[in-house]
């Protein structure tokens, strides 16, 4: 039963990979579960005709920048939230969570206006900035959870030993929170890599489109180039799948920590 479920969950992907190597003409011609003839046509077309490396580059830049910024700034915010006592801390945490749950569609129009007035439509900053609206709450929320798990006595000991708070953070907390920081970075990257609505709304043409947008807009006027779409799907899925498989345990921990701990 469980095996069946695993097979079921793996099948769509298997089917897509298989199809991406199948000649276009045979895609809908009597499917068989095992490959009969494998070709690289779709991948070749993807990178030569479609310039698919452009959306890949865009996605890497946007998701990478978002992740780096979020983890660096988010770590400091989260540390403050996890350790310092101040008025309204609980309310602030709740607010951060609420912002993270905000329906994206509701902020598309104000963000659009804002970006247009800043001249940032169809630019990298014009994507990174909106991404921060969902990535930052996610990072902070996750990291607060990770920092809380570290005993406060460690940095107290460091401060008694003569370190300033910032130095204690750098020398003691960051090294110990490294697994948590890595998990957070991976999750933020995956969410940013997969984001669609903002990328669709705030880009105008292929030169700044991210991978999901590019794939969704492949559809031709009269016919759907399924072979290329599936090849692109495989390419788009590859980095996140590798990340997930490599850091499986951490991701599970991060996903559940973000939601279950409060």
């Amino acid at each position: 039963m469980l095996a069946l479920l695993v097979l079921g969950s793996a099948f769509p992907l298997y089917w897509a990979i298989l199809a991406s190597f199948t000649p276009e003409a045979r895609l809908f011609g009597g499917p068989s579960l095992l490959p009969s003839e494998l070709v690289l046509d779709h991948y070749r077309a993807l990178f030569t005709q479609r310039n698919f490396w452009i959306p890949i580059r865009n996605s890497l830049i946007v998701a990478g920048t978002t992740t780096a910024f979020c983890v660096a700034v988010g770590a400091l915010c989260a540390y403050a939230l996890a350790r310092l006592q101040f008025r309204g801390k609980f309310a602030l945490l709740g607010f951060i969570l609420a912002v993270g749950m905000f329906p994206q569609i509701s902020v598309v129009s104000p963000l659009y206006m804002l970006l247009r007035s800043l001249g940032l439509i169809n630019t990298y900053p014009g994507l990174v900035l909106p991404y921060l609206t969902f990535a930052m709450p996610l990072t902070v929320w996750l990291l607060v959870g990770f920092f809380r798990q570290l005993p406060a006595e460690l940095e107290e000991a460091a401060m008694v030993d003569g370190a300033s708070r910032l130095r204690a953070f750098g020398e003691v907390i960051v090294p110990l929170a490294l697994p948590g920081l890595a998990t957070t970075a991976i999750l933020t990257f995956v969410y940013s890599w997969n984001e669609f609505l903002f990328a669709l709304s705030f880009t105008l043409g292929p030169e700044r489109q991210t991978v999901p947008v590019a794939i969704a807009l492949f559809r031709g006027m009269y016919q759907v180039p399924w072979g290329q779409i599936l090849a692109a799907a495989v390419v788009a899925t590859l980095p996140v799948t590798l990340l997930v498989l490599a850091f499986q345990r951490r991701i599970v921990q991060g996903l559940t920590a973000g939601a279950v701990k409060g």
């Binding site: 479920l5 695993v6 969950s9 793996a10 769509p12 992907l13 995956v190 890599w193 997969n194 669609f196 991978v211 999901p212 947008v213 794939i215 969704a216 799907a233 788009a236 899925t237 996140v240 799948t241 990340l243 997930v244 498989l245 499986q248 991701i251 599970v252």
Partner: peptide, 11 residues
């Protein structure tokens, strides 16, 4: 089972 979660929704 994690793989479907990680795939972009559009994909």
């Amino acid at each position: 089972v994690l793989v479907p979660w990680a795939i972009p929704t559009v994909v």
